[in-house]
Nucleic acid binder design. Structure first.
Lengths: 249, 249
DNA sequence: TCGAAAGATAGAACACTGTTCGATGGGTGT
DNA sequence: ACACCCATCGAACAGTGTTCTATCTTTCGA
């Protein structure tokens, strides 16, 4: 529970000069630990974040990190919340437009962009709302727009869950690592996708008519557009539900 | 790539019906390896599948598994495809009803049930369509129903991707491990959820009006119902799109 | 029937991981 | 000056995926 004050939350070294270069011992801070963890994840991906690598980046020993964080899961939870904080500030103005669904869409798109930039986010986002207060705040932010629609509590609960689930589902799907030839840069992403499409076109047209039907679309598809199209379907259904409000005129 | 024939793929005796030569094969086989891997995952969860544990179950050494599988990723891909095969047979009859969207929903629900039973599936489903032919077949199966709607190729591509993404997104979300008190059975799932809801109700109502608004719904929610509600929103949007076909008509 | 080639298994070791423990440094207050 | 507690570190532990090499076992042609 959150009622215990944890002094570890604020060991930030007071700012000034930082002139003391002769430190034999390294001095960390919660902010530094999480920031460097996120940086490591962003630069080298999911598997690059190890306690030893992070410690090397911080200039210290691996065991020291355990003073700030109880486990790697908590480290990732906090890293996740750290970038969601940015989403919170980026979506601060997304409310009060004429159509609540427009706000809903704008928030969802911002979250989507954040996750596609950081594929590792999908797996840890909103895993623990105690350690991830910003994730909860984002949930609330979506919910407040749904609140402007005329829905029952159950319907609004389902609506927000659906939007959240859709975003992380699609984003996680897209975040799947291209098998190292795209990472190396030796093969462009377009060519990689094209090769994939060719593979599909080589299938038996009688057995896979649909795959053939959409192979060209797949070859030239844009991830963000694909996401937006699906989100619009979901939101169209939601608007339909909001319009057909039952009872009491 | 797929042009190399791998004999490991078929150590199964291929004699059709009838007189089986009673040639006792070795203890291992591709079928046994994958089946036991799935069993291990089902019984003890994600972290229980290790090469050593699997080898012990098969009655052999850990290194032997590498003759059938090149890496743990491939093992999980094959395990994933193994259970999707069941989904394929379970959804074999889900076509040709009057409304294609009804078929679409039935297939999606079957897939959802399979993933909720096996949370590990979400992370590996459709990761590699070469090693997961059944996943591709399921994609095709959904697509063939969308094909009955009057949509452009791009629209149908987006529709199937949206349904797939939504299913795995929600299922993966639900598959998050309850923190060991539910697993131990010491705390019932209802009580765990209720405790969660209480936590939400303790938040500042002014700052979290939506969370308060749906706390009761969350407390008594049913996962499957939650999924179906979101899916219905998506499908309602899809039907709307299919009804408003543009041009030349 | 024999022997060689291919199929299949296993033990030991390697590099690496998250995590724990005890010891020790260093700043702060008195 | 002293003690005190926060913070850091080195070393070790148990466990992981993976590889290498040696060894069984089956197959099959000469």
């Amino acid at each position: 529970m959150g009622h215990m004050v944890d002094k570890r939350a604020r060991p930030e070294r007071r700012g000034g000069g930082g002139a003391g270069a002769n430190r034999r011992r390294a001095a960390h801070s919660m902010e530094a630990v999480i920031s460097e963890a996120v940086a490591l994840l962003d630069e080298a991906g999911d598997s690059a974040l190890t306690f030893r690598a992070l410690a090397a980046r911080l200039g210290g020993g691996a065991a020291s990190i355990y003073w700030y964080v109880a486990s790697k899961d908590e480290l990732l939870d906090r890293a996740s919340d750290h970038v969601i904080a940015q989403v919170i500030t980026d979506t601060a103005g997304f409310h009060g437009s004429e159509d609540p669904i427009d706000d809903l869409r704008a928030i969802a798109v911002t979250l989507f962009d954040a996750i596609t930039d950081r594929p590792w986010l999908g797996a840890y986002f909103m895993r623990d709302t105690e350690v991830q207060p910003n994730a909860l705040a984002l949930y609330e932010r979506l919910g407040q727009q749904v609140l402007r629609l005329d829905l029952t509590p159950r319907q609004s609960f389902h609506a927000v869950s659906a939007v959240m689930g859709f975003v992380v589902g699609i984003a996680a799907d897209l975040g799947q690592k291209p098998p190292e030839e795209v990472v190396d840069g030796s093969v462009a992403r377009d060519e990689y996708i094209e090769r994939f499409a060719d593979q599909w076109r080589a299938l038996d047209p009688a057995e896979f008519p649909f795959v053939h039907h959409i192979a060209d679309e797949f070859a030239g598809h844009d991830d963000t557009e694909q996401f937006r199209a699906g989100l619009d379907l979901l939101l169209a259904g939601l608007r339909l539900q909001a319009g057909a409000r039952p009872g009491r005129g």
